[in-house]
């Protein structure tokens, strides 16, 4: 008979201890938006939980040595409202604001979004574009770092071991001459799972793009880097003409990535919408800066 144990560590040290007692029947819970729903749906009653939301340091957002450290239990609503994130990773604020409903954004955490590794996870495309890393703790208190891109292996698959928990996301914020934005399209305007999403990060010098990162989500098991688009962006002047070209390349990228999937017919057009959104948003932010 499995006994249900509920543990809510208050520090990383207590978390470490909890992890050391973890059995195959123990689940890590943060926002709960997926786990609580899943347990109920699958009629599972006998299980143990480690609630990591009572660990204060996992709820912090800090600017440290040029890097932004986001605790894994930081919720979408925090990412949406936080000034540091708004300023240095605006696309992450944008992605967080597009997730679920107000109620879900008040619970869902960035750590959960990564650990669940959904194909369409909205913050993930942004974290990829920013080369974000995560800090992971295990049951003996070892901490390792890994790129978010590497942690996520496939749909629902990560490199996280049974006794490991993501505690922090580390992002290098964008510089004054850098811009980023995120957009997604789902079945309706809001409260919808992404059918396709994307994040673009650009460095602009005198209106010329000197560097770029482009990730498109939901056209592969995890968000896909589009070198096709990056190459077309780099060293070009940021303008309407370039946008039109990029929209076309977006279609091409979709067809390259999912040549056989039925959804390609829609996504090859829809991608233009999100790329258009992103361009317009960056343009708007640029005008604000000037």
């Amino acid at each position: 008979m499995n006994k249900s144990i509920f543990t809510a560590p208050k520090s990383l040290d207590e978390l470490k201890t909890a992890l050391s007692k973890k059995t195959h029947n123990t689940y890590i819970v943060a926002g709960g938006t997926d786990l609580a729903v899943g347990m109920n749906k699958n009629k599972i009653y006998d299980f143990s939980l480690i609630d990591i939301t009572k660990i204060k340091e996992l709820k912090k957002i800090e600017y440290k040595d040029d890097l932004i450290e986001i605790g894994s239990c930081v919720r979408m609503v925090d990412l949406e409202d936080n000034e540091i994130i708004n300023k240095y990773v605006p696309s992450l604020s944008k992605a967080a604001s597009c997730i679920g409903s107000t109620q879900i954004r008040n619970l869902a955490t960035i750590g959960g979004n990564i650990a669940n590794a959904a194909q369409c996870a909205d913050t993930v495309a942004v974290l990829f574009a920013f080369d974000a890393e995560v800090e992971i703790i295990n049951s003996i208190g070892e901490i390792r770092k890994e790129l978010v891109y590497d942690v996520i292996q496939g749909i629902g698959q990560t490199t996280l071991k049974d006794d490991e928990v993501i505690i922090k996301v580390i992002v290098k914020g964008q510089e004054a001459n850098e811009y980023s934005s995120f957009s997604k399209i789902g079945a309706r305007k809001t409260v919808t799972i992404s059918k396709i999403n994307a994040c673009i990060k650009l460095a602009l010098n005198d209106n010329k793009i000197t560097d770029s990162r482009v990730y498109i989500g939901s056209i592969g098991v995890k968000a896909v880097r589009s070198l096709l688009i990056e190459n077309a962006l780099n060293n070009k002047v940021f303008n309407e003409e370039l946008k039109e070209k990029i929209l076309e390349l977006g279609s091409k990228q979709v067809l390259d990535s999912i040549p056989k999937r039925k959804s390609k017919d829609y996504k090859k057009i829809a991608v233009k919408g999100i790329l258009d959104d992103i361009f317009c948003d960056i343009e708007k932010r640029r005008n604000l800066d000037e």
Binding site: I185, R188, K189, Y266, I269, A270, K272, G273, I274, D276
Partner: peptide, 9 residues
């Protein structure tokens, strides 16, 4: 109608 996303308002 959004010509790209096909979403209708």
């Amino acid at each position: 109608v959004d010509n790209y996303s096909g979403l209708v308002e």
